[in-house]
């Protein structure tokens, strides 16, 4: 996947993954893809809800051991 930007949110607790994601997405152009790695267990629900609310698209989501990976396309 063509990731435009990568955000390492591992170890961060609520609400930081969302706060950092918002900042990162702000710097992107529509259509760009942000890859996020997080360990907060709430981040699956959080990032999905956040993306839907801002008309962004979760293109892919994977889990590798305890790291949650997201690819969000800016809407």
């Amino acid at each position: 996947m063509n990731t435009t930007k990568f955000l390492d949110a591992k170890g961060l607790a609520c609400p930081m993954p969302i706060v950092r994601t918002k900042k990162a997405v702000k710097e992107l152009e529509a259509g760009d893809i942000l890859e996020i790695h997080a360990t907060d267990k709430g981040s699956v629900a959080d990032l999905t809800a956040w993306a839907a609310s801002g008309n962004h698209k979760v293109v892919d989501q994977q889990q590798e051991s305890d790291v949650f990976k997201f690819w969000i396309q800016k809407g």
Partner: peptide, 11 residues
């Protein structure tokens, strides 16, 4: 403050 910061991230 967590809710407030979260809401700010929700624009």
């Amino acid at each position: 403050y967590i809710i407030a910061n979260g809401a700010a991230a929700y624009d």
